[in-house]
Computed example of a mutant assay.
Amino acid sequence: MSSQHARVWHTEEQQRQQVQQPNVVRKKVKVQKRWVTRGEKLMYIIFAVMFLAVSAYIVSFSSSVDQLNRNIESLNTQIDQQNVHNKNLAYKKKELSQPERIIKTAKKNGLEVKNTQVKQATEITD
């Protein structure tokens, strides 16, 4: 009788376990393959940061070169203006050092011209 008793007890135990645990339908979870892995994402981020840094450097460098070119152009304009001014002054110097003008100014101020030959003065060298 003990074997019968054990069988009954075993079947009752199985029934209790079935009642206690509801039937759970497990679905197979598909592991989705990632399109881009973490390492690739990291590489893309590093390349993007490097690209932005190089782009910013190029823009700042070209901006500084452009500013230097503008300064050079303004200096060239000033040089040209100064050259024109120097030429005007040289022309005025020639005009004011003409012998006829000197004689006319001398007579106007009451100086007597004894010898009518007036020579233009030159630089004295030591």
Results as ranks from 00 to 15, higher is better:
42 L>V: 11
32 Q>G: 09
116 T>Y: 13
121 A>Q: 04
75 L>H: 11
1 M>L: 07
24 V>F: 00
37 T>H: 01
42 L>G: 09
74 S>P: 01
64 S>V: 06
104 K>G: 03
77 T>Q: 06
56 A>F: 05
74 S>G: 01
50 M>H: 02
36 V>R: 08
121 A>F: 02
48 A>H: 04
8 V>C: 04
23 N>W: 02
104 K>N: 10
113 V>P: 00
73 E>Q: 10
11 T>W: 13
26 R>D: 07
19 V>H: 06
65 V>A: 11
84 V>L: 12
119 K>H: 06
33 K>Y: 02
13 E>N: 13
76 N>G: 09
88 N>I: 07
59 V>K: 03
3 S>V: 10
88 N>L: 10
109 N>E: 12
80 D>T: 11
22 P>D: 04
70 R>K: 15
117 Q>V: 06
65 V>T: 09
7 R>H: 03
54 V>W: 05
110 G>S: 00
21 Q>A: 02
49 V>W: 10
26 R>P: 01
64 S>W: 08
27 K>S: 09
83 N>Q: 13
38 R>S: 15
40 E>P: 00
37 T>G: 06
88 N>V: 05
33 K>N: 03
62 S>Y: 15
66 D>Y: 09
7 R>N: 05
24 V>D: 00
37 T>L: 01
21 Q>E: 06
83 N>S: 07
44 Y>T: 13
60 S>E: 15
104 K>D: 12
11 T>D: 12
5 H>K: 12
1 M>C: 03
69 N>L: 03
2 S>N: 07
84 V>S: 11
125 T>P: 01
86 N>W: 10
120 Q>T: 08
24 V>W: 00
8 V>H: 03
16 R>M: 05
98 Q>T: 04
17 Q>K: 12
42 L>I: 13
118 V>P: 00
27 K>N: 08
87 K>E: 11
100 E>L: 03
52 L>D: 06
119 K>I: 05
119 K>N: 05
54 V>H: 02
40 E>W: 02
74 S>K: 13
65 V>E: 10
45 I>G: 02
53 A>P: 00
45 I>M: 08
56 A>E: 04
111 L>W: 11
93 K>F: 11
63 S>R: 07
65 V>M: 11
